[in-house]
């Protein structure tokens, strides 16, 4: 098996998995595996409600810093995490002292590949197939409804606004690819090949991003302002969305928000609705 740092052999186990970060913990939960413990590694608070609701024992230390002493007290059979630099640094120690470790590519925008790795080390491939079918069906359903409503080809501008300014996701990332799959089109200026993000987009260029729907993803660290810019056209629908993350929960959230915004003319889900999305779309039934 090849994980994000090279070839590795780990025992297949869905029990006693230690998650090195909160997002890996949620990925494991989506596969039906409840980690015995999870580290609140990034501390962004986006998935706290899910972890709490699912009864995961969360350990909080300094952000971005694995606490080896604390980790060593976990009686884990398998350790899973992201190949974040500070984790890669101590990966060998975790491997030797705690349990075999598998790291998923931190920068990957392909949640299926990420879950594929976790499913293969936890023996939950069936559950992954179920999840993938579920997402694909939801995409297909929304595409049909958008077409039936005569909105196929409607333009959707999708930008992100954080404390670092405005940024633009390239076409290969999760939300842009879902927009394309459901039959919506981004403005020409946003159709940039790649799976990265163009950051620090100048406010002066905002006028080039006019569209039928102007969606700005934001987080809880700022009061978003992009849609209030004098350069934004008043002709389109302007909304702020939250939590369009590059994972399975993000996939369902993008689909649910698009349904509300484009078809129902409603406000998208709010920042506190993560648990609702989880319960409604992801939790194994």
């Amino acid at each position: 098996m090849v994980d994000a740092t090279g070839e590795i052999t780990v025992p297949v186990s869905s029990d006693d998995v230690l998650a090195l970060d909160e997002y890996t913990a949620v990925n494991l939960l989506s596969l039906g595996v409840t980690p015995i413990r999870a580290v609140n590694f990034f501390q962004l608070g986006e998935v706290d409600a899910i972890l709490e609701a699912e009864g995961v024992d969360v350990f909080t230390g300094a952000p971005f810093t694995p606490n080896l002493e604390e980790l060593s007290q976990s009686d884990a059979a398998l350790v899973a995490g992201l190949n974040f630099p500070t984790i890669v640094e101590v990966r060998d120690t975790i491997d030797d002292e705690i349990a075999p470790t598998v790291l998923v590519d931190f920068l990957s925008s392909d949640w299926r590949a990420q879950l594929d790795l976790l499913a293969s080390v936890t023996g939950t491939e069936d559950r992954l197939a179920e999840l993938e079918d579920s997402v694909d069906s939801a995409i297909e359903e929304l595409r049909d409804e958008i077409a039936a409503a005569g909105l196929e080809g409607a333009t959707v501008s999708y930008l992100e606004e954080t404390s670092g300014g405005i940024s633009l996701s390239q076409s290969g990332r999760l939300a842009p690819s879902i927009l394309e799959q459901v039959g919506l089109a981004r403005p020409a200026v946003e159709q940039v090949e790649g799976t990265g993000v163009i950051s620090e987009l100048s406010e002066e260029t905002l006028g080039d991003h006019d569209a039928d729907f102007m969606i700005v993803e934001t987080d809880l660290t700022i009061e978003p302002t992009v849609n209030e810019s004098p350069l934004r056209s008043d002709d389109g629908v302007k909304v702020y969305v939250y939590g369009w993350s590059e994972d399975v929960v993000g996939s369902f959230r993008v689909l649910a928000d698009l349904r509300r915004i484009v078809l129902d003319g409603e406000e998208p889900f709010g920042p506190d609705d993560q648990l609702q999305i989880w319960n409604e779309f992801v939790v194994p039934r």
Partner: peptide
Amino acid sequence: VLLDQQTLDAFRFW
């Protein structure tokens, strides 16, 4: 900023 990730995010750009 070490204790709070969101503060770090907002502060580092300021």
